[in-house]
């Protein structure tokens, strides 16, 4: 659905996006993470042909960006939720959606049905005729998402959809995005809410002007931490560590208080062995968990160190 190759954008001497090479297949929810100023919004604007690229190429929904003859077709096939909702405050929710639907050339009957379906999905149908100015931030965000969907696009760009929302509104918006995910829509989600990315996205990419890494949240976390098993035990720690080594072979085991952190290569096979070693050495096993870095750990490490995890 999205393929970029060396996509670059410079504003004067400042490079906003540097040689971005990325693939997002159809039906995937791709999270684009990065600090403010990393180039996420610029990337979305380039991919939606709102601004030009400096170099490189990109194909979005089958259209080459930068091809003037394809620009309008491309914008018909994508939906965008910009960082600022940008609704007409004195107009009603219905009028806002109707205007964009008309600009997207949606036929009148289909447009009415689409607006009704979306507003009902978002619990806004009863408030369709009220001016948007009377809505809460979360409701406005929902209207803006509906606006991006009113023409049933094949690809959706969401730029910080839960930014500045209270937890309840964020949850509502997240649930709606998950609903869209269940419909197998391709979604490109710009966010710096790592928790949101982890919960919603099939894969994530971390951008800091350059693309630092991509992968599923699980892969990234594993890439940073490797497989480590944490066992909380009662008993002589060094004896228990030696028992584990004698059973599984030499390996790194760190003692952290009443826990042993054991490097493992195959948790499914080795964790029962660890438990047996501890019990066999007279220890009392209180807890055994698989440790992993959080996505936040991965993000902070990669953004600050500027390189992919080993």
């Amino acid at each position: 659905m999205i393929h970029t190759d060396g996509l670059t954008k410079q504003f004067g001497t400042v490079t906003a996006v540097d040689h971005l090479t990325l693939d997002v297949p159809e039906g995937e929810v791709f999270g684009f993470l990065g600090p403010n100023g990393a180039g996420k919004t610029t990337t979305v604007r380039m991919l939606s042909s709102l601004i030009s690229r400096t170099s490189g190429s990109a194909e979005v929904a089958g259209h080459q960006i930068g091809d003037p003859s394809a620009e309008l077709k491309l914008r018909h096939q994508i939906g965008i939720l910009p960082e600022n909702v940008g609704l007409y405050e004195s107009s009603s929710a219905y009028e806002n959606l109707e205007y964009y639907g008309q600009l997207q050339r949606v036929e009148a009957t289909a447009l009415r049905q689409s607006i009704e379906r979306l507003l009902r999905m978002l619990d806004l149908w009863e408030k369709r005729d009220l001016p948007v100015a009377t809505f809460s931030k979360g409701m406005k965000q929902k209207v803006a998402i509906a606006r991006a969907l009113v023409h049933d696009p094949v690809l959706l760009f969401l730029d910080e959809p839960t930014a500045n929302l209270d937890p309840e509104a964020s949850k509502t918006v997240r649930e709606f995005i998950l609903e869209l995910k269940r419909e197998r829509r391709t979604i490109f989600l710009n966010t710096h809410h790592l928790d949101e990315a982890e919960r919603i996205c099939d894969r994530v990419g971390i951008l800091n002007t350059r693309l630092v890494t991509t992968g599923t949240p699980g892969e990234l976390k594993l890439g940073m931490s490797g497989h480590r098993t944490v066992v909380t035990v009662d008993g002589p720690m060094e004896t228990l560590a030696a028992a584990i080594r004698s059973r599984l072979g030499d390996r790194r085991i760190d003692v952290q208080g009443s826990s042993l952190v054991v490097d493992v290569t195959d948790p499914d096979r080795e964790n029962p062995e660890i438990a047996a070693a501890i019990v066999g050495a007279g220890g009392r096993l209180r807890q055994l968990t698989q440790a992993s870095a959080s996505l936040e750990d991965v993000y902070l490490k990669l953004v600050h160190e500027g390189g992919p995890s080993a």
Binding site: S48, L50, R75, I80, L103
Partner: peptide, 14 residues
């Protein structure tokens, strides 16, 4: 001021 230009520009309108 309503920041509605970006969504407008994102429609298939020149």
């Amino acid at each position: 001021t309503e920041k509605s230009l970006e969504p407008l520009l994102a429609t298939p309108t020149t």
